[in-house]
Computed example of a mutant assay.
Amino acid sequence: MRRAVCPGSFDPITNGHLDIIARASKLYDVVHVAVMINKSKKGLFEIDERIELIRQVTAEFGNVEVESFQGLLVDFCKERDIPAIVKGLRAVSDFDYELQMAQMNNGLTGVETLFVPTNPAYSFLSSSLVKEVASWGGDIAHLVPPVVLEGLNKRLAKG
């Protein structure tokens, strides 16, 4: 069985993330989405909320498993016998950082990293940018799945 992981904080998941996961789901039998926990960062959405949103927007693919993880991504891969990490690249600046991570991960455990060029429609997109635009009342409906838009609007209305 061909398995890969798409890691990230997904706070929240965007159409750019979803595009990479969808493309990976066509190439692999099982795609694990690892929602990485970073204790030093306070997210807008709790980990369980992120997982639920991702499950909802990836349900149509039929081969995506979503769970949280804290620690080294290579340990996540080793525990689940996942030989490949799939990462989307938006720009050259992403490549510099991601190449270092890929080489470190490969050196630690032999896990391979596959880089997928982001759809040009999402090349500027990040969760941070989505949250910032939404917090100022900007229209992000074309940047996130509808269920995520609804969750963002509710969360931001609470203040």
Score class of each variant (00 low, 15 high):
residue 2 R to C: 05
residue 4 A to P: 13
residue 5 V to N: 02
residue 6 C to T: 09
residue 8 G to V: 10
residue 9 S to R: 09
residue 11 D to T: 09
residue 12 P to Y: 09
residue 13 I to E: 01
residue 14 T to C: 02
residue 14 T to I: 08
residue 15 N to T: 03
residue 15 N to F: 09
residue 15 N to P: 06
residue 16 G to F: 12
residue 17 H to I: 09
residue 22 A to C: 06
residue 28 Y to W: 06
residue 30 V to Y: 14
residue 33 V to G: 08
residue 34 A to S: 14
residue 36 M to Y: 00
residue 41 K to W: 00
residue 42 K to H: 02
residue 42 K to D: 03
residue 45 F to A: 03
residue 47 I to P: 05
residue 47 I to F: 01
residue 48 D to F: 03
residue 49 E to K: 10
residue 51 I to M: 07
residue 56 Q to A: 03
residue 57 V to Y: 00
residue 57 V to R: 04
residue 57 V to P: 06
residue 59 A to L: 12
residue 60 E to I: 09
residue 60 E to C: 06
residue 63 N to C: 09
residue 65 E to T: 05
residue 69 F to M: 02
residue 70 Q to C: 03
residue 71 G to W: 05
residue 71 G to E: 01
residue 75 D to Q: 13
residue 77 C to E: 04
residue 77 C to P: 12
residue 78 K to G: 02
residue 78 K to I: 05
residue 78 K to R: 11
residue 79 E to Y: 08
residue 80 R to S: 01
residue 81 D to K: 15
residue 83 P to L: 11
residue 85 I to E: 01
residue 87 K to D: 14
residue 87 K to S: 11
residue 88 G to R: 04
residue 89 L to D: 07
residue 90 R to P: 04
residue 91 A to T: 15
residue 91 A to Y: 08
residue 92 V to D: 10
residue 93 S to Q: 14
residue 96 D to G: 13
residue 96 D to I: 13
residue 97 Y to T: 13
residue 97 Y to N: 05
residue 101 M to H: 00
residue 104 M to F: 15
residue 105 N to A: 07
residue 107 G to N: 15
residue 109 T to E: 14
residue 109 T to H: 10
residue 111 V to A: 01
residue 111 V to E: 03
residue 111 V to K: 01
residue 113 T to W: 08
residue 113 T to L: 12
residue 120 P to F: 11
residue 121 A to D: 13
residue 123 S to N: 15
residue 126 S to Q: 00
residue 128 S to E: 07
residue 129 L to M: 15
residue 130 V to Y: 03
residue 130 V to C: 08
residue 130 V to L: 11
residue 132 E to H: 07
residue 134 A to G: 13
residue 134 A to P: 14
residue 138 G to E: 03
residue 139 D to Q: 01
residue 139 D to H: 05
residue 140 I to C: 11
residue 140 I to W: 07
residue 141 A to Y: 10
residue 143 L to W: 14
residue 149 L to T: 11
residue 150 E to K: 10
residue 152 L to P: 08
residue 152 L to M: 12
residue 158 K to H: 13
residue 159 G to P: 09
